[in-house]
């Protein structure tokens, strides 16, 4: 429900003395994105993705810095950032496990996966484990209904899942999430953001 607003009056946007939007990130945006769009505001969404990719989430301070950089009001940047569910405005775990909660998965016992993870990780959907390793969420249709039930672990889709299969996947995750790659992508060209 993108229209539900949170009271942020008590929140301070400033949390760090060093800027989140580093010169390196600014240069990346200037070179890769500014030439492609007629307005700076159009760069806001890719920029939010870039910040999230870099830090794992989007701090309020980064939204303020982005607004200044893109020459829009902080409120405008916040307005966009809060509308989209996939922007994390609070820290999330190293691994984001998104279980599909769509009808096709539901028919194929997808709920068991969430229940299993609830018990195993000791968190409710939307919460992060105390060690900061896992965040559990339920997601809308992941577009793989033919092989339901499915879940997305960071950027890798896992299908025809069972609680046991999930256990094996979780046990095999590398310490550093950057080492976790999709086995079907045979090339290595991913750079930060784009």
């Amino acid at each position: 429900m993108a229209w539900i607003v949170e009271n942020r009056r008590e929140q301070s946007a400033r949390t760090s003395d060093t800027p989140y939007l580093t010169d390196e990130l600014k240069n990346h945006l200037r070179e890769k994105y500014f030439p492609r769009y007629p307005t700076k505001r159009a760069v806001l969404m890719p920029a939010l993705h870039l910040v999230q990719h870099t830090y794992g989430w989007i701090p309020m301070q980064a939204i303020e810095e982005l607004a200044e950089f893109l020459e829009i009001a902080p409120a405008e940047a916040l307005d966009t950032a809060t509308f989209y569910e996939e922007y994390w405005l609070k820290p999330k775990g190293k691994y984001l496990i998104g279980v599909c909660r769509s009808l096709a998965c539901e028919i194929c016992r997808g709920q068991e996966l969430t229940d299993h993870l609830r018990r195993k990780l000791g968190v409710e959907p939307g919460e992060t484990t105390p060690d900061g390793r896992f965040t559990l969420i339920e997601m809308e249709c992941l577009g793989s209904c033919g092989t339901a039930p499915v879940a997305l672990v960071n950027e890798v889709l896992h299908e025809e899942l069972t609680p046991e299969k999930l256990d094996r996947i979780i046990a095999s995750l590398p310490e550093d999430p950057h080492d976790y790659k999709d086995p079907s992508v045979t090339w290595e060209t991913e750079k930060a953001g784009h």
């Binding site: 505001r41 159009a42 989209y84 809308e140």
Partner: peptide, 23 residues
């Protein structure tokens, strides 16, 4: 890249999203 808003499949919402606004 979208960011998890189903309504952005609607064409005018999709356009707003590319422009950097709420979808």
């Amino acid at each position: 890249l979208g960011a998890g808003a189903f309504v952005c499949g609607e064409e005018t919402a999709l356009i707003a999203s590319i422009e950097g606004k709420r979808g």
